[in-house]
Computed example of a mutant assay.
Amino acid sequence: MPYNRVDLAVRELIASFSCLEAPDLIDRLARTAAAVAGTTYSGFVRVDALRQEACCVHVHAPPGDPLRLRRWLAESGVLKELAVSSVTVRVRRDASVGEPGFLATPVPVAARDHTFVWVAGRGFGDGDEHLLSRFATAAGRALEAASGMEAAVRLLRGVRAFRPAQP
């Protein structure tokens, strides 16, 4: 087969656009949210378009989950609260009743269901809320960019598949 510049160029573009894996991006964003908030717990929650159900998309927790946050997320009712909320949700830390401290803010992403980024594990104040809100905006842009790259890869594969054969 003769050297084909178009095929090579399209393959290289697909390879470079495919480097960003959505699960890796979400994990990196969650880890960074925890670092920004000065805690070891963070994650993402997705709410369906009808705002009836919320589910954890990703949870970043230290080994062994010492605060048993995964269980708390499932049993506390905070997911139901996020399902109906369109604003930041803050739960005060109260170890005597098992409240670990929780802060979730909406991620402005136009192409997805409602998404929240959350941090947990200590008491949070207004400054934390402001910082997490700014981080959520950056995370939303990153998620939209990743989605755009995935769409570009699909289109480029179509270009490669349907390009007329070169003599």
Rank of each mutant, 00 (worst) to 15 (best):
T105N: 03
G127L: 00
A54K: 03
A136G: 07
G140Y: 06
V84T: 12
L50W: 05
R31F: 08
D65Q: 03
L131S: 10
A22M: 15
R154I: 09
V117D: 02
P164R: 06
E12M: 15
L131R: 08
T32A: 08
T137I: 13
P66K: 07
W72G: 05
F17N: 03
A138V: 14
A22N: 11
L82P: 02
R157S: 07
L67A: 08
V153M: 12
A165Y: 02
D128H: 12
G125I: 07
C56T: 14
L50Y: 04
T105E: 05
R157D: 10
E99H: 05
D94N: 15
R11D: 10
D48Q: 07
E75P: 03
E144D: 11
A136E: 01
A35Y: 07
A104S: 01
R163T: 05
E81T: 15
P62A: 13
H58K: 11
S18D: 12
A111T: 13
R154T: 09
R68D: 12
S76D: 06
D126H: 06
L50E: 11
L25H: 13
D27E: 15
A138I: 09
Q52E: 15
A152E: 08
D128T: 09
R93P: 05
V45L: 05
L67E: 07
L8V: 08
A54S: 07
H130V: 15
D7W: 00
L73S: 05
V6H: 05
L79F: 14
R141E: 10
L50Q: 12
V87D: 11
G158L: 00
Y3H: 13
D48F: 06
D113C: 08
G43M: 06
W118D: 04
I26T: 12
S76T: 08
F17P: 00
G38T: 09
L155P: 00
T40W: 10
G98I: 09
L82K: 04
F44N: 01
S96A: 15
T137S: 09
G98C: 09
E81W: 08
H58S: 07
C55A: 10
A15V: 02
A136K: 04
V91A: 08
F116M: 04
S85E: 10
H114K: 10
P100A: 04
R163Y: 10
R5K: 01
M149L: 15
K80E: 15
E75V: 12
S133I: 05
R28I: 07
Q52N: 13
L131I: 11
L73V: 07
E53P: 03
P2W: 10
G38I: 11
L155Y: 02
L8T: 02
R154A: 13
A139E: 09
I26L: 15
